[in-house]
């Protein structure tokens, strides 16, 4: 493999919309999904990634190359991640979280999740619904009931209302 021969091994990844990408094996194996394929010897030809589109895969590969170029310094990796995600819009972040989950890249997954959550912080319920395109499925009565339930300070043990 790469380290033994001195020539970097390159893998070819295929997105679900049939785009092909070349990426150094050393960077691609940040994905546990891809690493397992490589270790099982299934990475000889083209690796099909059925759950990732070309636009997202291009972005993930940029991230793979960027982060694997940084030596073992967690602070620098963290600031690279922050910078990498800083200009991404919501839809891209949602696509990235799906891709990171499918590719089993826990650091990227964590960073993207945190980024999405950060946008929600200190925002009104209405703002979050609008921004995320979520339909309010509470009836007015249900919403009033939940608000009331959250409002009061109960003195006593809470009821077991979940399973």
């Amino acid at each position: 493999m790469a380290a033994e021969t001195g020539t970097p091994t390159t893998l070819t990844l295929k997105s679900n919309d049939d785009e092909l990408f070349s990426v150094a094996e050393s960077a691609a194996i940040l994905s546990v999904t891809i690493r397992n394929m490589v270790e099982d010897g299934c990475a000889g030809g083209v690796i099909p990634l059925d759950n990732v589109d070309g636009k997202t895969l291009a972005s993930v590969i940029t991230y793979m190359n960027g982060i694997s170029a940084i030596p073992a310094d967690e602070e620098k990796k963290k600031s690279y991640r922050d910078k990498f995600l800083s200009d991404k819009d919501f839809e891209t972040l949602a696509d990235m979280v799906l891709a990171a989950n499918y590719l089993n890249m826990s650091c990227l997954m964590d960073a993207v999740s945190a980024k999405i959550a950060q946008v929600m912080e200190k925002k009104s319920v209405g703002w979050v619904r609008r921004k995320f395109g979520i339909e309010n499925d509470y009836t007015p009565e249900e919403e009033a009931a939940v608000k009331e339930e959250h409002k009061w300070t109960f003195e006593g043990v809470e009821t077991d209302d979940d399973n």
Partner: peptide
């Protein structure tokens, strides 16, 4: 997003934001 990914995202929110906000969204 599937529930398990939404679970991951909401974990990053502070408790006050979840209880006072996210829980009302849907």
């Amino acid at each position: 997003l599937p529930d398990e990914l939404m679970f991951e995202i909401l974990l990053h929110l502070p408790a006050d934001d979840i209880y006072g906000g996210a829980a009302f969204v849907c």
